[in-house]
């Protein structure tokens, strides 16, 4: 509540730590020669992420917002290097990740760690907390066997856990404490960047506040860069410097957090913001945007949002709008900006 603001919006002058260039990810089997010869139909292909450009600078927190199925988790996994892109390039400190030597690649992978939504399923139930947190730094030679105990204790303490509980198993902790174990594990390999995928979504409001506060503290202490993925606009607004809005595999708008929340440009962003329930809006009339997210197996042509967009016109169903600058520091992919400009 008090003290200096932890988020400083202008700390983003540093070099990009990670850069995505026209990155796409498809899921599904390729229609190979054999299956063609056998006369099989091509397997359905899901275009989870298509042609995304995004750069994240050192020390910045970028919020990635979208509804289920929009590809935000896939994008997070591409950033974390857990899966390779189907097309496009991921640059790590300005160099293509694909061209790194084996040693550099390992360092790059350690450099980005993930914190998942469900600590229950991302922590091995048969390992003690000390093993969960200590295994990776030991395997990667960050610590020796003799220093492990003290190191693990320090990691746990930093995440707000009592080190005397380290002999316990994950099921012996509450949801909030388990999320702290996940945070301690991610930070134990001293990453430069975190990818938080809905890391506070499953927590109760009061516990969620505790974890967000821990996250804000760690971010200042360790100068962490972060991709913060969430469907909760309130949380994203609170922690992010910059926000990217995703819809069906594409980024439709990207700008500084205060710009997105005060002057949203894309009709989808506007609709999302209008429909977030807020404490201040009493007895409101719900319901503005109609329809649902179309299937990524069969996305609509042109702008993916046009079937639900109240402002759509003929061009929207023919031509994919390009993500381009509409105001200083604000990019949006909408044909309406051509009419207005």
């Amino acid at each position: 509540m008090s003290g200096a603001p932890i988020v400083e919006p202008h700390r983003m002058s540093g070099a990009p730590i990670i850069e995505l260039r026209k990155v796409s990810k498809r899921f599904g089997r390729p229609h190979g020669a054999l299956s063609r010869w056998l006369g099989q139909k091509p397997a359905p292909v899901v275009q989870a992420v298509s042609g995304v450009d995004l750069s994240i600078r050192t020390g910045e927190v970028v919020g990635l917002v979208g509804e289920s199925g929009c590809g935000k988790s896939t994008l997070g996994r591409l950033v974390a290097g857990i899966m390779p892109p189907s097309a496009g390039e991921v640059l790590w400190h300005g160099r293509p990740r694909a061209g790194l030597s084996a040693g550099e690649e390992r360092a790059a992978k350690l450099g980005v760690q993930m914190i998942f939504q469900d600590p229950q399923s991302s922590l091995n139930p048969r390992m003690r907390v000390s093993e969960i947190v200590g295994e990776a730094p030991r395997v990667h030679g960050l610590i020796g066997a003799e220093g492990e105990e003290a190191y693990v204790d320090a990691q746990l303490r930093r995440a707000g856990l009592d080190p005397s509980l380290k002999r316990r198993y994950p099921h012996q902790f509450s949801g909030g404490q388990r999320q702290r174990i996940g945070i301690a594990r991610a930070l134990a390999v001293q990453p430069a960047m975190l990818v938080c995928d809905e890391s506070v979504a499953a927590l109760d409001v009061s516990i969620q506040a505790q974890i967000i506060n821990l996250f804000l503290d760690l971010r200042t202490d360790l100068n962490l860069t972060c991709l913060f993925i969430s469907h909760d606009l309130g949380v994203v607004e609170h922690v992010s410097d910059r926000v990217a809005i995703m819809y069906l595999g594409r980024i439709v708008e990207e700008a500084l957090a205060e710009t997105v929340f005060s002057r949203p440009n894309h009709p989808y962003t506007q609709a999302l913001l209008a429909e977030v329930p807020r404490l201040e809006t009493r007895k409101s009339r719900f319901g503005a945007i109609q329809g649902e997210l179309p299937s990524p197996l069969n996305p609509p042509p042109g702008c993916h949002f046009h079937p639900r967009c109240p402002h759509a016109f003929a061009r929207c169903s023919r031509e994919v709008p390009v993500l381009r600058e509409v105001a200083p520091g604000q990019r949006s992919a909408c044909h309406l900006n051509d009419i207005a400009g």
Partner: peptide, 16 residues
């Protein structure tokens, strides 16, 4: 107090 949108952006949340 712990609802994020009620707090000043980037400041620590009120927590129980």
């Amino acid at each position: 107090g712990s609802v994020p949108s009620r707090n000043r952006r980037g400041h620590k949340l009120l927590q129980i």
